[in-house]
Design a protein around this nucleic acid. Structure first.
Lengths: 396, 396
DNA sequence: CAACTTTCTCCACTCACAGGACAAAGAAGC
DNA sequence: GCTTCTTTGTCCTGTGAGTGGAGAAAGTTG
């Protein structure tokens, strides 16, 4: 099958494509209501899109009391690949043009194995999805990496937790391998875009998306657009000072948020507690598995273990203090908490909320929801698909 | 004289007006180089602007080897009023259409006297400027207030340091009194716009502008646009936690940045130090004046007083720690320090720089200038004039 | 079957805009 | 003084974007 060759020729067409993507199939009349164009002009642009094959007209909708309308929809064969490279695992998904997930696989992996090994795995996962008949090829791919990215070029820059990726031309390399356009971004930004597109952040202009996984980061959306900062490192909140003279951090400083709360820090603290005999629950898990992860802490907490709950509360308080500062500064309309630790659930959320509502001024917190992400592990891949579709659905 | 009645009819005209404002007078040919329009279309739009009186053609420029060009410039009679209401003083200035300050006066005042008293003073200051022959009237006014503003309506909301202003229709009231369009914003945002227009932040897309005066606040510019947040309280960093279990703050919490460093905090600490006999210099000043202000501390520091220098360094460290967090989060391309305490100069700046460069990651700080504002007390009024001119130079 | 609705198409008219021809005004060389 | 070249600004025509109305197509309702 020939892949997507055309791009929208003008802003009107781009607008229409995005309407169809976000709102699903519609008739010409419905499109006319949502776009500021005369019926005649709209018909012209739709016809041109039909010619390019980007959209198709299939079937007639039920009558609403008059002539039945033609259903206009995005080409049903369009397929986007969403890739979310985490610190310890890879998510790959295929979506259709409406960014609905058709297939999704996850595999453990270590980013520190370097770009070559990781790419091999990503490509084999993509091949598996293709082989399962979900896609004959990909029209575009979005990919998220756990570190700062020089966005226009799609190249990671000085990523702390992924040495060996610095300056690696991710966009170009992947584009060559897959034979389709590729866009690269920070994984946290993609999570934010995912929640914005299909999750809790729909129709919120300014929000923060805090991702707590192996590390900790924050996606920033201002005026509906992702804010990436001057060097692409915006949202890198893991190394904000949380505890003066606190724990040593990999970055060389002390007391960084990430050194006190993150998947890695939680596992470390849980292990210490277990070895000190503070928790029978954690100790038995340590013995069984040989090691502890955030998942064990979550399970222990769910079982009512006091030490585990304390660890989570403590971490939540630290995180909440930092978020309180960000809320005062940025004044978002929503704060989303996501990432691997969402399994810690409401204990974590309650601790964060307490700190934010206590420390920030009422004007900033008065109507500020702080909620868990809605999409879980799919947020990243949906965001990735959204990234590339935004690119492809813009005038060339 | 009849004031500015017309507004640009379309985006092209708006663009041309802003080019003339920011780049000064120019010929049609020069305008053509800076705007993406054919000469014919450009001529049409310029002619229309000439008809409306928004721009004038006066005289011929020197020849550059061919036919001499007509000088196109903004109407020389246009006058904007810039008002910057601080916690303890008011600045009012008149500018021409190019936002050059033609006259500027400053008077001490207390915002807590409430909007009615303050307005009376602002109007009398504006009248004085008009009487001096600098303006026959005002085509628009921008006004900054030291607290959050619901921007579209131009109404302060829940301003901590200016009780009595909550919900007061500043925009509407002032517009009625002055008989011209008015825009209202937070004073810190206006300072940022001022430095962006005519100061150190020219041509920087993402930057922070930290204003340390009676209180402490931060203007945020992202992608060239001021970020105001969901409720207009973005940049309110005075109540970010700086010292766990630190000094009590007026907001009810402890350890807020503003409780540890601001004009007010500095005066308080200096007084304490003087009373404890830690500094002869400060004690003598206290005796002479009966009280101490940040200006006294600056003078003592300039005279080499160790205690005063310590106070400044200490405060700079606290502020620097908070700014370090904001830099990690926002990844700006520039940090501007301004406000009343700029008199503290390089001692303060050095302390802030030390903290930021030490605590934030190299990628964010690698090429990050941290500098004092260039415009001093005029930043606010220039920003105010810029605010209203941006409004008036946009299609109606 | 008539009357009304909704959807879509066609057509004529207006306006935005580009691009080239050309006029105006001066500089530089002969 | 005259020609040639350069720069600036104006005029004119052709093209394509876009609007709005007329009306055809395809239904529903009574």
């Amino acid at each position: 099958m020939r892949r997507m060759t055309a791009r929208p020729a003008n802003a009107h067409q781009a607008r229409l494509l995005k309407l169809l993507r976000d709102g699903g199939p519609a008739s010409r009349a419905q499109l006319g209501d949502r776009v500021d164009l005369s019926r005649s002009k709209l018909a012209v642009e739709v016809d041109r899109l039909l010619e390019t094959g980007l959209v198709v007209a299939d079937g007639l909708a039920a009558s609403r009391g008059g002539r039945r309308s033609h259903n206009i929809r995005l080409a049903p064969g369009l397929r986007f690949l969403g890739v979310d490279i985490g610190a310890t695992s890879i998510d790959v998904a295929v979506t259709n043009a409406e960014l609905e997930i058709l297939g999704h696989i996850n595999q453990p992996m270590d980013v520190r194995d370097g770009p070559v090994a990781v790419f091999e795995q990503v490509l084999s996962m993509a091949a598996k999805l293709r082989a399962s008949g979900l896609a004959e090829g990909f029209d575009g791919a979005g990919i998220g990496v756990p570190g700062p990215v020089r966005f226009p070029e799609g190249v990671p820059v000085a990523p702390p937790i992924m040495p060996g990726w610095d300056g690696f031309p991710v966009r170009e390399a992947l584009s060559q391998e897959l034979g389709c356009p590729v866009m690269v971004d920070n994984d946290v930004n993609l999570m934010a875009m995912g929640e914005q597109h299909a999750g809790v952040a729909r129709s919120v202009g300014d929000f923060l998306c805090v991702k707590i996984g192996t590390g900790i980061g924050c996606g920033i959306v201002a005026g509906g657009e992702v804010h990436r900062g001057t060097t692409g490192s915006a949202g890198d909140i893991g190394h904000i000072l949380a505890v003066p003279d606190g724990r040593p951090c990999a970055c060389g400083n002390r007391g960084c948020l990430e050194a006190h709360f993150s998947g890695a820090a939680l596992a470390r603290d849980a292990k210490e507690a277990a070895q000190q005999g503070l928790s029978v629950e954690l100790a038995s898990r340590l013995e069984t598995n040989g090691t502890l992860t955030a998942v064990d802490v979550a399970a222990a907490a769910a079982a009512g273990d006091a030490t585990a709950l304390d660890l989570i509360r403590e971490g939540g308080n630290r995180t909440g203090q930092v978020i309180a500062g960000l809320v005062s500064f940025f004044n978002p309309g929503l704060v989303v908490i996501g990432g691997g630790v969402t399994g810690l659930g409401h204990t974590l959320l309650a601790a964060i909320r307490t700190q934010v509502y206590r420390q920030s001024l009422p004007l900033a917190t008065g109507n500020l929801p702080i909620v868990l992400g809605e999409l879980g592990p799919t947020a990243g891949v949906i965001g990735a698909a959204r990234l590339i579709s935004d690119h492809l659905f813009s005038p060339a």
